[in-house]
C-alpha cells in the first residue's frame, strides 16, 4: 500500500515537472527579452527539474521491481535535486549579472532600473 502511495505521489510530481518543463520552454520562446526569460528558465529549472527528480526518487523507493539498486536511484536522484537547488540560482545569477555588466543583452522593455541609477560597481 505504502508503495502505491509513494509511486502515486512520485508520478504526480513528475507530471508537474513535465508541465513546468513545458512552461519554461514556452516562456523562453514567448517572453520579450533576456532578463524576462530568466524567470521562465527558473521555472524550468526548479519546477521542471528539481520537482521531477524528487518525484523520481519517490517512485524509485516505491518500485520494488527494480531490485536493491533502487535505493541508489532514489538517493542519487534526491542528491541531484538538492544540488540543483544550489546550482540553478547561482547559475542564473551569474549569467544575469554577466549579461547586465557586459551590456550584451538588451534591457528593454524595463520600467525602472535601479542599477543604472547609481547602483552596481
Amino acid at each position: 500500500m505504502i508503495e502505491l502511495v509513494l509511486v502515486a505521489a512520485g508520478l504526480t510530481l513528475i507530471a508537474i515537472g513535465v508541465f513546468y518543463d513545458f512552461v519554461g520552454a514556452v516562456g523562453l520562446l514567448r517572453l520579450p527579452n533576456f532578463f524576462t526569460r530568466l524567470h521562465a528558465a527558473t521555472a524550468g529549472a526548479i519546477g521542471g527539474a528539481v520537482v521531477p527528480m524528487i518525484g523520481a526518487s519517490l517512485v524509485a523507493l516505491g518500485a520494488e521491481y527494480l531490485g536493491p539498486p533502487r535505493f541508489f536511484l532514489a538517493g542519487a536522484a534526491f542528491a541531484s535535486g538538492l544540488l540543483l537547488m544550489i546550482l540553478a540560482q547561482a547559475g542564473s545569477h551569474a549569467i544575469a549579472r554577466a549579461a547586465y555588466l557586459s551590456g550584451e543583452a538588451p534591457r528593454e522593455p524595463i520600467l525602472y532600473d535601479a542599477l543604472e541609477k547609481g547602483g552596481g560597481e
Partner: peptide, 29 residues
C-alpha cells in the same frame, strides 16, 4: 546570454529526463 540560458535549461531538464528514463528503462545504476 539567451543561448546560454536556453542551453542551461535544456541541460537541467535533460538531467531530470535522464533520471526519469532510468526508471523507465529499468537500469537504476
Amino acid at each position: 546570454p539567451d543561448r546560454v540560458l536556453a542551453v542551461d535549461s535544456l541541460g537541467y531538464d535533460l538531467a531530470a529526463f535522464m533520471v526519469v528514463l532510468s526508471i523507465l528503462l529499468r537500469s537504476p545504476l
